[in-house]
Amino acid sequence: MSDSFKPYESAITAIASQIPGSPLREAILTRLFLHVSGELSDFFDARLKEYGLNYTTWTSLVVLYSSPQRRLLPSELSVFINTSRTHCTRIADELVDKRWVERVASESDRRQTYLQLTAAGIAFVEQLQPQRREQYRQLWSSFSLEEQNQLDALLRKMLALLES
């Protein structure tokens, strides 16, 4: 077990020994999952910090890059990046400030404003994408294809349970 998780595991085990009927295994798995999630965020964010980004803002750029005409409504982007519309507005503001995104009025409905990737935003995504691909390869290189498929199935099972 990783040294960074040992304090949590010790604390959970101590609590379980003091409270009869505690779901020790489930508590450890849940905390381990949350711990891994935090470490995963740190892993990806570390290489983005030099650009003033984090995984969510980077994902927003990639989603816009892959969208038709390289633009989306803020409400559409919030669905793709699984965040609130309010948080999506803050992300958009940040990307507009960096000149990677601009707000463009809809031609068909003046009430709607699109988030449009700029030429600088397109160039930035294309410049950084090879590094990001390598980071994914590095992360998953010690897992066999079978292990990756098992983890995929288990995570989808958990997600379905949480969403039901």
Results as ranks from 00 to 15, higher is better:
M1I: 08
F5Q: 07
T13E: 14
T13R: 14
A14P: 02
L24W: 05
R25E: 14
R25V: 01
A27E: 07
L29C: 14
L29D: 09
T30E: 11
R31T: 05
R31Q: 10
V36N: 15
S37A: 11
S41L: 11
D42L: 13
F44H: 04
F44S: 04
D45H: 07
R47I: 02
K49P: 03
E50H: 05
Y51K: 11
L53H: 00
N54I: 00
T57S: 13
S60P: 01
V63G: 07
L64P: 01
Y65L: 01
Y65G: 02
P68S: 04
Q69V: 02
R70Q: 03
R71V: 00
L72G: 06
L72C: 09
S78E: 08
N82D: 04
N82W: 04
T83Q: 13
S84G: 09
S84M: 05
D93G: 07
E94V: 03
D109C: 01
R110W: 15
R111L: 06
T113I: 06
L117W: 01
L117E: 02
T118R: 14
A120N: 09
E126R: 12
L128G: 09
R132T: 01
Y136F: 10
Y136N: 08
Q138M: 14
L139W: 13
W140A: 11
S142K: 14
E147H: 07
E147T: 01
E147C: 05
N149Y: 13
A153N: 08
K157H: 09
E163M: 15
S164V: 03
